[in-house]
Lab assay of single mutants.
Amino acid sequence: CHSECLGNCSQPDDPTKCVACRNFYLDGRCVETCPPPYYHFQDWRCVNFSFCQDLHHKCKNSRRQGCHQYVIHNNKCIPECPSGYTMNSSNLLCTPCLGPCPKVCHLLEGEKTIDSVTSAQELRGCTVINGSLIINIRGGNNLAAELEANLGLIEEISGYLKIRRSYALVSLSFFRKLRLIRGETLEIGNYSFYALDNQNLRQLWDWSKHNLTITQGKLFFHYNPKLCLSEIHKMEEVSGTKGRQERNDIALKTNGDQASCENELLKFSYIRTSFDKILLRWEPYWPPDFRDLLGFMLFYKEAPYQNVTEFDGQDACGSNSWTVVDIDPPLRSNDPKSQNHPGWLMRGLKPWTQYAIFVKTLVTFSDERRTYGAKSDIIYVQTDATNPSVPLDPISVSNSSSQIILKWKPPSDPNGNITHYLVFWERQAEDSELFELDYCLKGLKLPSRTWSPPFESEDSQKHNQSEYEDSAGECCSCPKTDSQILKELEESSFRKTFEDYLHNVVFVPRKT
């Protein structure tokens, strides 16, 4: 048989008469490798580009789960590009990614509803959504962080984005990388972005840091009482949809009607710091009717980097990364020049730590249904340095008659930039024990000054392991946590139920 035959053949030295091919099969003959313009397919066939392209389009058009959109890589027609490569849609070739590779997620039936953290986790790592997304989240724990972890990498949506009755959302900033909504599939009414009845939605994105392009379709905003109209108009300008909307697409009466839409800028007039305090004062603000001013709200939190936005980490279910302080308005003076500047002394802060701070007014709604208010920009203030805590785990070892090696770990709280350490030492008198000992005694162990690591005695271990207080009263049991108490109650309830079950099964009433 021919060298490319495997198993047997019907005619000697003829690659077209093989029972099976050793390498690849091409047009009725066995070959060692697939010549151009053919590609290896499933490690035994040679196919042309049209064959591989037909497989790709067949799966793409069917949208069946589990099928493969075949691509070409290293002269092979394979189910998908290997790690580190992405497909070129024009020629199906796998090309190296520039940075992290995109991950295209194809949605069944063309859309997916995100109504819980669990459903959001199914899209973790996706960068391109081939379909439409509907966000409908009523509640949950730590929602802002969970949504950002699972949806934060999405850069492109081919269909539309719909935010509907998501009472738990305060902001859409968890879509931190969303840059493009194509609108290839539109919501009824030709809408590519749809926001309806979101009672706590206050911000779409921080438009000073976020760009969003909507290729096709219109915007729809109705019944978002805490979303200011200025935020919607800003989205029109940034996304390129200005002029597409009709009169009733953006409701003037049901958007922002319960919001404090600040239209003035508060400026800080005085800032002073110490290692654990920050004193702030800002310019006074009074609405047209000074009785509408209820006070100020001061927001602050630790910020290692200057990239904080107002609604980071917030949701309507209680999660809030900001510390909020309510401040009463100052006494009002008739003389504008003698107006008191409101302020606040922030206490209990960490030394040498940068804080993000902003302040906003708290006002009631005027009778004319106009909203007044003022808010400052987010500023960054760093507390002063102070003395560091003591170095940890000092170790001293003498390696000769004239040297001592000293080692330690950095302090747990540096409280500033540590530039150097101060080492103090003092000579001590020799131990009298060394002169009084009889060095001729056998088995004498000389006193040693070398360091030995501390260890816990058996008594201390027994005390720590004991669940009861000892007789001397030195140790006591740790208080039980809520989960331990709940577990004990469940076990007790189970024992009672099981005992009742045994009584009912074992003891049967005697027939009379």
Rank of each mutant, 00 (worst) to 15 (best):
L252K: 10
L266N: 01
W322A: 05
W282V: 03
Q403M: 08
G217D: 00
S398I: 04
M235P: 00
S269D: 06
S402N: 15
P288R: 13
Q382P: 02
E109S: 14
Y194C: 15
L133N: 00
S333T: 08
K162W: 12
Q216H: 11
D315M: 06
L265G: 06
I379N: 04
S402A: 15
N198R: 00
T371M: 05
F174M: 06
S239F: 03
I214R: 05
M297R: 01
Q216F: 12
Q339C: 11
A195L: 10
R347P: 12
A303I: 14
Q216N: 03
P287T: 11
T254N: 12
L349W: 00
G243M: 05
E262A: 05
I378L: 13
N141M: 14
N136W: 07
I137G: 12
H106G: 05
F296A: 05
E146T: 04
K301F: 04
D335N: 06
P388V: 15
R124I: 14
A145S: 10
L331Q: 14
R176Y: 09
N224R: 00
Q306V: 09
S166K: 00
D393V: 10
K409D: 07
K253T: 13
N190T: 07
F221W: 02
R369N: 14
L169E: 02
G110T: 06
I327K: 02
L147S: 02
S401P: 04
N334Y: 08
C317D: 15
T215P: 02
Y160H: 14
P288D: 04
G189A: 11
N340K: 05
D393G: 03
N255T: 09
T383N: 00
W352F: 08
L227G: 00
L143H: 03
S119E: 08
W322D: 01
V381M: 08
S158T: 09
V238C: 15
N130W: 02
L143S: 15
T241Q: 13
F193R: 00
K407P: 00
L349Y: 00
S269W: 03
T241D: 12
R370A: 14
G139Y: 04
S230H: 04
K253V: 09
L178F: 03
A303N: 05
V397H: 13
D292G: 05
K409Q: 07
Q199G: 13
R179M: 12
D292F: 09
S239V: 14
D249A: 08
N320I: 04
D115H: 14
R369P: 05
T127R: 07
V390L: 06
I154L: 09
E237M: 11
P284L: 15
D206E: 13
S239W: 03
S400L: 06
P342Q: 06
W286R: 09
L180Y: 09
F365R: 14
L212N: 01
T254V: 04
E231G: 13
W282A: 01
Q203K: 12
A374S: 05
F290L: 04
D276M: 03
V381S: 03
K226L: 06
F311H: 12
K234M: 01
Q216V: 08
Q199Y: 06
P284F: 09
L331S: 11
I154T: 06
Q203G: 03
L147R: 01
P394K: 11
G256E: 13
W207L: 06
I214W: 05
Q199T: 09
R124L: 10
G139R: 11
Q245T: 11
D206R: 03
T383G: 00
S132N: 13
L265S: 11
R164P: 05
E264C: 04
S333K: 12
I379D: 01
E283P: 04
H233I: 13
G183V: 01
A145L: 13
E246F: 11
W205P: 01
W282K: 00
T361S: 11
E109A: 07
N130L: 13
N136F: 09
S389V: 03
R124H: 15
S338F: 10
L280E: 00
D384F: 02
T309F: 04
L392C: 09
C261N: 03
H106D: 04
D335F: 13
F311N: 14
T213S: 09
S158H: 06
P394S: 12
I137S: 02
K360M: 04
G125L: 12
F221K: 01
I181V: 11
N340Y: 08
L201W: 05
L172R: 00
R202K: 13
W282D: 00
E231L: 11
Y167R: 10
K360F: 02
K103I: 14
G140L: 14
R281L: 07
G152A: 01
V325P: 00
E302Y: 03
S338M: 11
I157V: 14
D326K: 05
L349G: 01
K234I: 09
R347F: 10
L265E: 06
T273P: 03
N224S: 02
P288A: 08
F193E: 00
L204A: 13
T361A: 12
L172D: 00
Y285L: 14
E237L: 13
